[in-house]
């Protein structure tokens, strides 16, 4: 495993931040860009995601997992981020890493570049992701004796931004999440949770691991790569 960094492409005069990049890189033929699950699910699925990468490595496939600007170890504010901005930045990483495929986890599917073939694992769209974050905030408020509604929060968030589950979202991110549907998966094959033989680890209240599920996901990717390399099979 290589712990390095990548520089999200800067826009205009703005200087690029340096973000974490965890990779398994032996300059092999197949190089999978891993797009992490977003926000709270990034934490609960981090270990699982790395386990998938280790399993891919053991089968001779390179992979790279970037920190998105504003997430994980990033020093730049989440408030300045948006899905559009992340997509633009990832375009640069696709080039610099020389990615041949993409594997997107959950909400990461919203960022998967259409230019790359690949997979989306248990994909989640913006409205659904946002709804759960809003619900957590409303539940928290009710527990604290305050009354909040999703509608009022959203109305404010579209203009002012919104703090949800500890994330300080800017207005643009709120608006994008509210409207971001998943593109039809023409080049990205859907991998449903049911194929992994257990419940999704994103459901866990606390991060957990499951080597069998990680291997199952990696095996699906490896099998598809094999099929693509040998169309007669």
């Amino acid at each position: 495993m290589i712990v390095g960094t990548w520089s999200p492409a800067s826009q205009g005069a703005e200087s690029a931040s340096e973000e974490l990049l965890v990779s398994f890189d032996q300059s092999r033929t197949h190089r999978v860009l891993i797009l992490p699950a977003l926000f709270d699910e990034a934490n609960t699925l981090r270990r699982f995601t790395l386990s998938v990468m280790r399993a891919l490595d053991a089968s001779g496939v390179d992979s790279a997992l970037p920190d998105l600007a504003g997430m994980n170890e990033s020093l730049v504010p989440m408030r300045d981020q948006s899905l559009t901005r992340w997509r633009t930045q990832l375009g640069g990483l696709v080039e610099s890493f020389g990615a041949t495929q993409v594997l997107a986890m959950r909400g990461g599917a919203m960022l998967a570049p259409a230019s790359l073939p690949g997979w989306r694992y248990a994909a989640l769209d913006g409205p659904k992701l946002l709804a759960t974050l809003l619900r957590a905030r409303v539940v928290n408020a009710r527990e604290a004796g305050r009354s909040e509604t999703r509608e009022a929060l959203l109305e404010e968030g579209r203009v002012m931004g919104l703090r949800l589950a500890g994330w300080d979202f800017g207005a643009k991110m709120v608006c994008e999440l509210e409207n971001e549907q998943l593109a039809p998966a023409s080049s990205h094959r859907a991998i449903d949770q049911s194929r992994l033989g257990g419940p999704g680890l994103w459901l866990r209240a606390e991060p957990d691991e499951d080597e069998d599920q990680a291997r199952a996901l990696a095996d699906i990717v490896i099998a598809d790569i094999g099929d693509a390399a040998d169309p007669s099979s």
């Binding site: 709270d40 659904k128 709804a131 759960t132 974050l133 619900r135 957590a136 905030r137 539940v139 928290n140 527990e143 589950a165 994103w202 459901l203 209240a205």
Partner: peptide, 9 residues
């Protein structure tokens, strides 16, 4: 609250 939100969903 986050786990409860996930649970209800």
């Amino acid at each position: 609250s986050m786990a409860v939100a996930g649970l209800l969903t």
